[in-house]
């Protein structure tokens, strides 16, 4: 693409996850192309888009992977979690079930993503005020309890979409720059076909019977 896009200081891989139909693809198209389709086709497997933003005078290139929401695709999509430094976990504020499933998605990330991944809980479709089924306060409290940042967005009317990405990318940038770690060159983090599951067991010395629920 254009040479401008080739120049960046940091490259961050971010995944979009959450139930089917919550608006992940539209958040992505709104952020990267400023487009919205009321009836956009379901995502098959994983789709990719990118956009660069400026933070502290640095160019941060976000490589965003939009994943299929359906359970059946989990084996494929989970491969893309590796190397991701950020995740937008999206639910639909008008569908309570998609909010209830947030816990399952968190578990999914714990199992497959890097331990230090920055997670932002995103309540999308905030334009559907009259259909709201998930209270902002409730979601906010949940996010705090779980150490997630939180925002409500509307891909339809653009509310907070840029801000959501800006926030998570800035947060990642702060962490990374504090650690003084230079990001690896382009693409190095994206090799889902070579993924070997890394079994990160918690270094617990006592009985961990409760772990059984996660299988």
């Amino acid at each position: 693409m254009s040479s401008k896009d080739d120049e960046y200081d940091y490259l961050f891989k971010v995944v979009l996850i959450g139930d089917s139909g919550v608006g992940k693809s539209n958040l992505l198209s709104r952020f990267t192309r400023n487009e919205f389709n009321l009836e956009s086709k379901s995502t098959i497997g994983v789709e990719f888009a990118t956009r660069s933003i400026q933070v502290d005078g640095k160019t941060i290139k976000a490589q965003i992977w939009d994943t299929a929401g359906q359970e059946r695709y989990r084996a494929i999509t989970a491969a893309y979690y590796r190397g991701a430094v950020g995740a937008l976990l999206v639910y639909d504020i008008a569908k309570h079930l998609t909010y209830e499933n947030v816990e399952r998605w968190l578990r999914e990330l714990r199992d497959h993503a890097d331990q230090n991944i920055v997670i932002m809980l995103v309540g999308n479709k905030s334009d559907l005020r009259h259909l709201r089924a998930v209270l902002t306060e409730e979601a906010k409290a949940f996010a705090e309890r779980n150490g997630l940042s939180f925002i409500e967005t509307s891909a339809l009317d653009s509310t907070n979409v840029d801000l959501a990405f800006q926030n998570i990318l800035t947060e990642i940038y702060r962490i990374v720059s504090q650690k003084q770690i230079r990001d690896p060159p382009e693409g190095d983090t994206i090799r889902p076909q070579n993924v070997e599951p890394i079994d990160v067991k918690p270094t617990m010395n006592s009985d961990s019977v409760r772990k059984q629920c996660c299988q």
Binding site: I44, G45, I76, A79, E186, D188, I190, R191, P192, Q193
Partner: peptide, 16 residues
């Protein structure tokens, strides 16, 4: 060379 894996684009071709 550019780290494109076949899964990234052909999954949908095959699935659909």
């Amino acid at each position: 060379q550019h780290n494109v894996s076949y899964l990234q684009f052909s999954f949908r071709w095959l699935n659909n």
